[in-house]
Design a binder for these strands. Structure first.
Lengths: 161, 161
DNA sequence: GTATATGCAAAAAATTTGCACCGTG
DNA sequence: CACGGTGCAAATTTTTTGCATATAC
C-alpha cells in the first residue's frame, strides 16, 4: 500500500538530511542497509541482517553493517536492544509508537506492549534524581503458561506482519 | 555490625540448601565467590570479580567464576544485568528491596531507584497478554545536566558504601 | 571409589580495528 | 582528486567448551 512507500520515503529523507548535516557520505551501502531494515518487520541481530543482505543483490561487509547501524541509531531511525544475551538486537523505529518488550524465557520470542505510565515514571524519576532521561528500556521476562494460548498466536502473527 | 554478618549467614544457608537440593557439590570455590560478591556493594562484571579474587587469598579460574555466577543467578542470590554493553553486570540480591536502574550515558555510572508502579504495570501487562511475568528490567538512560549536582554526589557515595 | 567441579587453555562468538582501495563530494 | 567509507582479515573482548586432574560425597 502507498502509505508504506510514503513512510520509507520520509525515512530516506531523514537519513539523507542527517548525513548531509553531519558531513557524512551518502553511500549506496548505507541506503541499502536502511532499506533492508525497513523492509523487515521484526527484531534482528547484526548477523541476520548481514545474511539477508548477502542473499540479495547487496554485498556488504559486516564492518559496514556495524558502522551503518551505529549511524542509524544515532539519528533515531533504528533502536538497539540488549535483551539479556551477548548479542545486540535492533529494530526500525520511524513511525512506530513508543513500546516496550516482553521476552519469553522459553522460546525467546519478543512481544511488544504499550503502557503510558512508563513515561510518567520516567519523568518523575528523572526529576527526582536530577537526571535528564533520554530514553528507557523496560523488559518483562516470563513465559506463556499455555502452549496454544491466544498470546502465542498473537506474537506469531505480529512477527510476520 | 552484626546484622550484616547475620545476613551473610542466611545467604550461606540458602546457598547450601540450594546446592544440597540440586545435588551440587559444596566446593570452597563456590563459597569463596559467594562471599566475595556479598562483601562488595556495587555492580560488577566477571573480570572485576575474577581480579579481586586473584588479589586475595582465593585463586579461582574464570571458568569457575562463570559457572558459579550461573548457579547463584539460578538460586536468586545474584542478579545478572545487560546494561547495553557487551558485558554482563551482576549484583547481589538477597535482602535488597526491588529496584531499577538509571545509567549515565556520560560516565556509565549506575544509580538505583524504586517505584512501586512498575510492579503494577508488570501485573497488568502480564495478565493482559496471558504471560507469567517472572521478573523485569527497567533502565533509564540519560545524563546529569550539572556536573556538580546533588545526584552526582549521591551516586559517588553509593558506589563506595 | 566415583562422579562432579576445577583449572587451564583452546575455541567460539561478537565486535572492533588497521589498512589498501574505491568512490562521493 | 582528496578524504571518508568500504571490504577484508586480523585483533580484541567476552563467554563457552574440552579435557586432565583434584576433591566432595
Amino acid at each position: 500500500m502507498s502509505t508504506e512507500i510514503d513512510k520509507f520515503d520520509s525515512v530516506k529523507k531523514i537519513f539523507t538530511a542527517y548525513l548531509e548535516n553531519k558531513g557524512l557520505r551518502k553511500t549506496p551501502e548505507r541506503f541499502a542497509i536502511l532499506e533492508e531494515i525497513y523492509l523487515r518487520d521484526d527484531h534482528f541481530d547484526v548477523e541476520e541482517l548481514y545474511i539477508s543482505m548477502k542473499n540479495k543483490k547487496y554485498q556488504v561487509s559486516r564492518a559496514t553493517v556495524y558502522n551503518t547501524l551505529d549511524v542509524l541509531v544515532e539519528c533515531d531511525l533504528v533502536v538497539k536492544h540488549q535483551f539479556g544475551r551477548n548479542q545486540a538486537q535492533f529494530e526500525k523505529s520511524y513511525g512506530r509508537r513508543q513500546h516496550d518488550h516482553l521476552i519469553c524465557t522459553d522460546c525467546h520470542k519478543v512481544t511488544e506492549f504499550c503502557d503510558p505510565r512508563v513515561q510518567t515514571i520516567q519523568s518523575l524519576v528523572g526529576e527526582m534524581l536530577h537526571f535528564n532521561v533520554m530514553h528507557h528500556s523496560l523488559i518483562f521476562y516470563g513465559s506463556c503458561t499455555n502452549k496454544n494460548c491466544e498470546h502465542r498466536a498473537n506474537f506469531q502473527a505480529r512477527s510476520q506482519e
